[in-house]
Design a protein around this nucleic acid. Structure first.
Lengths: 126, 126, 126, 126
DNA sequence: GTGGTCTAGACCACT
DNA sequence: GTGGTCTAGACCACG
């Protein structure tokens, strides 16, 4: 299971982790009853604090994606992957919409905005 | 001069103010040597902390769009609207990039993301 | 606002805090739009870690009892106090039921169990 | 000898085992010098970790209810069923006390709590 | 081994 | 001042 964290961004690490695990579940790379890596294991692997991983796991359990058993670990819960995909798309949609609205408020034409978008999508920047 | 702040959003208030003043300058509604409303006046008008307005004005001066004269107020500086346009584009670019990064973190293909983008840009609801 | 934490018990401190604030809201001692003490203030007052208070506030916000505004503080949200009372009673009911069931499993008569209950309720032990 | 473990509850498995064996002893279904099932046997039967069974047996021996003979197994010790009864009462007492404390933390009056208690004790659903 | 809670700091962003 | 995130440990309970 490959998880990547980016310290430089302004996105909380725990959110990056939760997002990626949600995606793994949605893609079927993590299935119902699969065991997630232990908090300590993942924290060592990613070289971050165990508490940060814990926070990610807590949010996943809170959102119903996992079930945690004391002394055993966190298991993937039954999830409707279709629904999850829709939710994730909605989130991206909302973010893109905000950016577009701001662009229009700045007086940029839709063509200008699309131009910026194409520029970014074309680049490879990790 | 009409400035609107939206507390409900997740956009910092000082940023909303600075953005709107920058746009007013770029569009020519505020011209060189025009006097901005005083920090106290604007803060009362918008019912927000004077410190927040001050922060917006600071950021404007810092970016070279205004000049502050002690005891008199903040004046619009000579502005290169081209430069301003570039700055605003940079900002939209950054927002778009964040959304795209998150989309990729969600495992969406660039095609999926572009599809969402086109959908939104196509609609008229700004 | 009086909040008491008991380190000796096996009840998480953050849960004790959240429970008591919920109760204050239910009783009307905290009303809609009231400002909770800041995380730092309360942590100093209770001589516990700020993170522990934060965790309590997070759970309250998560459950919809408060709204947090960055840089300003946590406000009491609109709540149905009747509903909240019912929920709290349900929780106590469930705990009592578990204890009673265990007692019966131990072969104690309902009279024995009631006897124990009366003994405890009669004592004063904060 | 019938022992049942319930993973779904929030009661530690080792405690469930020890409780049930204690009750068997007190009720006379297990008598002095009776041999308990081996740790390995019971762990296989209940499909749980041998360490968990071991912990239950340890707690029983620690409390004086069994005697372990190296290489042979765990035997029921001479038991003062009166004492055992007292211990079990203590346990129920502790559980009831926790529930009552929480009820008070919720701002319920002792009358309210007693009301809930009576309601549950009155029903037959064990 | 596992998760659950807690500490005493730190740095950042917002008001 | 405020909240939001993070660290690098600690101790406890459960398996």
């Amino acid at each position: 299971m490959r998880i990547i964290v980016n310290h430089g961004q302004m996105v909380p690490i725990y959110e990056q982790i939760a997002d990626q695990i949600k995606t793994l579940i949605r893609k079927g790379e993590l299935r119902e009853d699969d065991l997630l890596p232990s908090v300590r294991t993942l924290s060592k692997e990613l070289k971050i604090s165990a508490l940060t991983v814990k926070k990610a796991y807590d949010s996943l359990e809170n959102a119903g994606f996992t079930k945690t058993v004391h002394g055993k670990g966190s298991y993937v819960a039954a999830t409707d992957t279709e629904l999850l995909l829709e939710e994730q798309k909605k989130e991206i949609e909302s973010d893109l919409e905000k950016a577009i609205r701001k662009g229009r408020r700045f007086g940029l034409s839709d063509g200008d905005i699309r131009c910026l978008f194409d520029l970014i999508l074309g680049e490879e920047d990790a």
